[in-house]
Design a protein around this nucleic acid. Structure first.
Length: 619
DNA sequence: GTAGAAGTTGATCAC
DNA sequence: AGTGATCAACTTCTA
């Protein structure tokens, strides 16, 4: 008699049924029962910075996934269990007599730590784990192996390795049937199945989730205003294993406030929405075949965005990346013209960059987010002073979109409101906050993006901040984005500014990106006095830019960037001060975190990125 | 080991 | 208005 295969399919980075190599692997085990589980992890609720926009998108995507499962198998659904996965899942394995745990591989830092613990627990419990690559075009583990353990620091190195691996695999269709999540063979109706599952949870003791540090609470500048009660029970409190509500994560107030805004701007979550958007995109073969990132406009509003807006769906795996790759390839065939674009600037190139950051992060390991240039601020994720009041004021103004520079403010307000910003807009604001004007370390800016972006990615977000701050990936620090010239190139009329900074709406085009330069007469006519109705610039941008350029030059001359010893141990500032007479922001005191999700960087990580990286975390 | 080329997406000015 | 030269000069990759 063959053994009874009972699979727990653990959804994490893959809120979809199409193009899922992991789900395919689960079904190919030919299981007698399949439990589609989402573990509502308190680490995500409390220990990662997540604002309302991303939570909302996630919850919508979870609900859509659950509905889709039910569509295929009316007596099944997504089983949302609330708790720390390393604690809760092993209990469920035993209660549900699970033989196999199957999931899509998550190579990000938190994913690696969590899954290592899960793997160990599974070994103890004699549960067989099947982890399948599916979130990227290529497996970061394989890319790193082929790159001899080194991180992919340029797109060409990633492309070269990708060429060696071969074609991106073709997407898989969604399954046509799914086994039931049944505890005993005589059950087959959904309410009976759920009842039995809820019954099986009885007696699980010590079900406590720590909220000792809540990065999303208002104390940490987050958007949580009320108490979290989603952890009051494992199954949601009514035996339904339902998707948590906004209310249960303590963000109902902010959601209601947002509800008063224009609802049509919201980016809706879910697999169906993702596939619809992709389908629409593929009806524009000219757009796809000639797509060139540098020529897309960061000045468009979200309704007529010049890019695809598919990144949130890729982030949560609502859209399979292979599906996107091959549908694009197919659409290109319908292009009648002769001028086509190629990676890295075309759409395929954008997907390759996503892989590049994931592979680099995997190769560097836990030190990835410690890479920086020019100062040692912001190492810990707990709150800490920047070291001086001026920097704090600048950071706060930046986050709230009141720097007095309309291009920056419009982009930052768009980000907070919509959870999205055009890629080149992200370039503008990131360069402005770091090496350009404000001289604030990139982690503090990245934290704002952590909270506000729907498409936040654990590799791409820090990676791009490193890029723009010239901490890694990019080193041409003498290139900067103008606060007037750059946006004017795309939109001289300042449409985005007029939308997100309505107080400036009546300024003439000539002054829309620099209203502070307008004569008082024009300010009065526009009904907006600078310094009263709209902030005066928080800094002298030309002066700051020039000063910072000198600082950057000095940093690069001394090789104070990346993971150099002087940067990591905090002596870089002092040395620079001594040798150049430049006053750098005073060092913030590092508050080392003792929280379990943060693993302190190894002490011997003193060499440059290029010289290390071959040994760690490549197992 | 070394030299030369290349590197997702600049700003400014001259014409 | 749009193109092209110049600016200043980094790191990484390739031969």
């Amino acid at each position: 008699m063959t053994s009874d295969i009972r699979v727990m399919f653990w959804f994490r980075t893959d809120l979809r049924l199409h193009d899922s190599p992991a789900l395919q692997a689960a079904l190919s085990l030919n299981p007698s029962a399949l439990f589609p589980v989402w573990c509502w992890d308190p680490n995500y609720v409390y220990k990662h910075r997540v604002g309302i926009n991303r939570f909302r998108f996630l919850l919508e995507s979870m609900q859509t996934l659950s509905d889709r499962i039910t569509e295929i198998e009316p007596n099944s659904q997504l089983l949302v269990v609330r708790g720390e996965p390393t604690y809760l899942l092993p209990l469920l394995w035993s209660r549900w007599r699970i033989t196999h745990l199957v999931f899509e591989k998550d190579t990000s830092a938190y994913g690696r730590r969590r899954d290592a613990a899960i793997l160990a627990a599974a070994k103890t419990a004699s549960v067989i784990v099947v982890a399948v690559q599916g979130h990227h075009l290529y497996d970061p583990e394989e890319v790193t192996r082929r790159n001899k353990g080194k991180p992919t620091m340029t797109i060409s190195s990633l492309q070269k390795i990708a060429d060696g691996i071969g074609n991106v695999p073709k997407p898989l269709p969604a399954p046509q049937s799914l086994p039931l999540p049944k505890l005993t063979s005589n059950l087959s109706k959904r309410n009976e199945l759920l009842l039995a599952l809820a019954e099986s949870l009885k007696g699980i003791t010590n079900f406590a989730v720590s909220d000792d540090i809540d990065l999303n609470s208002s104390a940490f500048g987050g958007q949580r205003t009320e108490k979290v009660n989603c952890y009051d029970s494992i199954d949601g409190g009514n035996g339904e294993f339902s998707v948590p509500s906004i209310q249960s994560i303590g963000m109902e107030t902010i959601e209601n406030e947002r509800g008063n805004n224009n609802d049509s701007f919201k980016i809706k979550g879910g697999e169906a929405e993702a596939l619809t958007r992709l389908e629409k995109l593929c009806k524009k073969p000219d757009y796809i075949a000639t797509f060139s990132k540098p020529n897309t406009s960061p000045g468009n509003s979200i309704q007529d965005a010049s890019t695809t807006l598919l990144s949130p769906y890729l982030k949560f795996g609502c859209l399979g990346v292979r599906k996107m790759w091959w549908d694009i390839e197919e659409a290109k065939k319908k292009y009648k013209g002769t001028k086509t674009t190629t990676p890295p600037q075309n759409l395929n190139g954008q997907l390759l960059f996503r892989d590049m950051y994931a592979c680099a992060e995997f190769a560097v390991g836990d030190n990835f987010t410690r890479i920086r240039v020019y100062d040692s601020e912001g190492v810990s994720i707990t709150p800490r002073p920047l070291g001086d009041a001026v920097s704090e004021q600048r950071l706060a103004a930046f986050k709230e979109g009141r720097t007095g520079f309309p291009w920056i403010d419009a982009l930052m307000r768009q980000l907070k409101q919509e959870g999205w910003m055009h890629h080149l807009g992200r370039h503008s604001v990131a360069a402005f906050l770091t090496r350009g004007q404000c001289w604030i370390s990139w982690e503090r800016g990245a934290e704002i993006f952590d909270e506000y972006l729907i498409d936040w990615d654990p590799c791409s977000n820090p990676g791009n901040w490193m890029w723009l701050s010239c901490s890694a990936f990019y080193s041409q620090y003498f290139k900067l984005y103008g606060l007037v010239s750059f946006p004017s190139k795309y939109d001289a009329s300042g449409k985005l500014v007029r939308q997100y900074c309505p107080e400036l709406a009546n300024f003439p085009d000539k002054f829309i990106y620099e209203p502070h330069a307008a004569p008082l007469k024009i300010q009065k006519k526009a009904g907006c006095i600078i310094g009263v109705d709209y902030p005066a610039p928080i800094l002298d941008e030309k002066k700051q830019k020039e000063e910072n350029m000198v600082r950057m030059k000095a940093c690069f001359a001394k090789q104070f960037y990346g993971t150099s010893e002087e940067v990591l141990n905090g002596t870089a500032d002092e040395i620079l001060k001594g040798s150049h007479g430049i006053s750098l922001p005073s060092n913030a005191k590092e508050i080392s975190s003792t929280t379990p999700w943060t693993i302190a960087a190894s002490k011997n990580s003193t060499s440059k990125l290029k010289r290390k990286a071959s040994t760690e975390e490549t197992k």
